[in-house]
Design a binder for these strands. Structure first.
Lengths: 151, 151
DNA sequence: GCGATTCAGTTGCGTTTTGCAACCATAGGC
DNA sequence: GCCTATGGTTGCAAAACGCAACTGAATCGC
């Protein structure tokens, strides 16, 4: 999907959504963060149709969120691994997950823990350069305009 | 869109994506954060078809991300305003935007500034309870499983 | 070496979602 | 009453999606 209409958009969020903004793409990235690397494992974990998975993996590789790495004896098998850019989506995933947990308390999410200490993670929040916690209304956002014919 | 398949998923990210995980929904929320409230203004700002906009707004209202507020003389006109839950997506939007800015340096995003001080915002990052900055690999993520037949 | 199996796709086809445009319905101006 | 603006709804074509069946290469069993 992703109707590439806003490819040329100057809006950073629009461009981000162009790369990982459809349902499956972020779920694939999430699975990759869980350690999934093989085509068939993604397929099983997500219950996604193979053609869609193919398409999404290709798109994620194209956008350098994943890298397709040949593996195995004659390079016949391969894996999809997160690139640094892909790993950097971690913040986004954590933000989404924390949002979900805050507003769907019924969720029995196992929670995320620091590997070293076993402690839960801190909640993400937007803060100013001097450390004050900020709400949307405390921030000046300039549209940067979603359409090309900005005006 | 959003094939409600994973509605019953225990995966927090999946449920979040169910509510705001399609292309337009997050763009609408973003516009709302910019201060857009009226149907026609969303339509103009995004260049979205009216039926889709209708559908997305209704879904966002249903999920309590936006609230439809009657306004004007006889309540004929109305506005869509962010609820607290919607405003709380700010972290997600900022995370996405910062990610995009980091990996698309060509982007001339005007940047986001603290209204009080005029300073740019801090970069979001995931941190442990004792403040160490964490990468994906420093965190224990439990799948919580994307499929219902969890096992 | 030969068939069976696994993995990673691709192809076909029918269903669902999009997106565009054109059409209602109500309110207000004049 | 006629015109415009706002906020939708409807119809239809095109694209995306999901399923299942098929391909093609590599590996396994023997």
């Amino acid at each position: 999907m992703v109707r590439k209409r806003l490819d040329d958009s100057h809006c950073a969020v629009a461009r981000a959504l162009n790369e990982v903004g459809d349902w499956w793409s972020l779920m694939i990235v999430l699975q990759a963060m869980y350690g999934v690397r093989r085509f068939s494992d993604f397929q099983q974990a997500l219950g996604i149709a193979k053609n869609i998975l193919c398409d999404r993996l290709a798109r994620l590789v194209e956008h350098q969120v994943l890298a397709k790495v040949a593996v195995g004896e004659q390079g016949s098998r391969h894996e999809y691994r997160l690139t640094p850019k892909g790993r950097d989506l971690f913040t986004v995933v954590v933000a989404l997950r924390q949002w979900s947990d805050r507003w769907h308390p019924d969720s029995r999410s196992p929670g995320m823990h620091d590997r070293a200490e076993g402690q839960p993670l801190q909640e993400l929040y937007v803060s100013s350069s001097d450390g004050r916690r900020l709400d949307v209304r405390d921030v000046i956002l300039q549209p940067a305009d979603a359409r090309k014919d900005t005006a």
